[in-house]
């Protein structure tokens, strides 16, 4: 039902949609992240067991949740692209990939940093950290596959297939690793499983989660716009846009 949409209009419309949404995303991300982080780091009560070191969850947990979420979003975009042959879907998929990989990296880094005071080691083969590590590899795979093709249209489709294969695997990997972990190390390490969390600790976490999500949206928007411009640089509307931009800059120079 989407196929009748003219492909040129689609990229152009996607570009404009990004333009409209971007300021709101940046604003929301900045607001949520500063409120959530300040609240979480300075005002939320300390944990009775872990003291202040637990505060890293305000970074770690949103990053971890959204690293998985971004991967699923990529797979959804890939599916849309494959089913409806929508060029912009593949573009947005590949725009998301490095952002998701960054989130995964943040989750891994903060997890390791949290591990040092908690377990006395920078790296412990904890189930969740291991799944995150494998997720990072999956991101690398998709990005490497995309980079390997010269024809970016082909690249998008290929990377999309890989993202779908990966997303089928993510739950299998997650549960297999969790199961492997209980098998090998028993239940001694379960610090991540906080059974319940106090409301005054939870609120800043949720706000930060929203902030991270908006941040991912904003960065993806910028990357999608870049991708569209790079891919469509021969199209008239992009050249018009470039000419307009040059004109604007010229005017500013005159004003100065």
């Amino acid at each position: 039902m989407w196929k009748w949409l003219h492909p040129y209009a689609k990229t152009e419309r996607a570009y404009q949609l990004c333009n409209t949404l971007k300021p709101w995303f940046w604003l929301g991300a900045l607001g949520c992240l500063s409120i959530g982080t300040v609240w979480g780091l300075l005002f939320a009560p300390a944990d009775y067991q872990q003291g202040d070191s637990f505060r890293i969850i305000y970074i770690h947990v949103p990053a971890a949740i959204l690293s998985m979420g971004t991967y699923v979003a990529m797979a959804v975009a890939a599916l849309v692209g494959i089913v409806w042959q929508w060029r912009t879907a593949f573009m947005s998929m590949i725009a998301m990939a490095p952002v998701g990989a960054l989130m995964t990296f943040i989750a891994l880094f903060t997890g390791a940093a949290w591990g040092k005071p908690m377990w006395g080691a920078w790296w412990v083969w904890d189930a969740r950290l291991t799944s995150e590590l494998i997720l990072l590899f999956l991101y690398f795979g998709v990005m490497a596959l995309y980079a390997a093709f010269d024809d970016k249209q082909q690249a998008g489709k290929a990377a999309g297939v890989m993202a779908l294969v990966g997303v089928v695997n993510v739950p299998i990997i997650h549960y297999s690793v969790e199961w492997w972990n209980t098998l090998h190390q028993g239940a001694t390490i379960s610090k991540f499983d906080n059974p319940s969390i106090a409301a005054e600790m939870l609120w800043p976490l949720l706000i930060n989660l929203l902030g991270f999500a908006l941040f991912i949206g904003a960065v993806t928007g910028v990357r999608l716009q870049n991708e569209i411009i790079r891919r469509e640089r021969h199209r008239p509307w992009v050249q018009q846009l470039a000419a307009q931009n040059l004109d604007d800059k010229g005017e500013k120079h005159h004003a100065v």
């Binding site: 010269d150 024809d151 970016k152 249209q153 891919r231 469509e232 021969h234």
Partner: peptide
């Protein structure tokens, strides 16, 4: 019959 065919290669029409 090839009808209304459009193709791009490496983003060149």
């Amino acid at each position: 019959i090839g009808n209304n065919l459009t193709s791009h290669k490496q983003d060149r029409c």
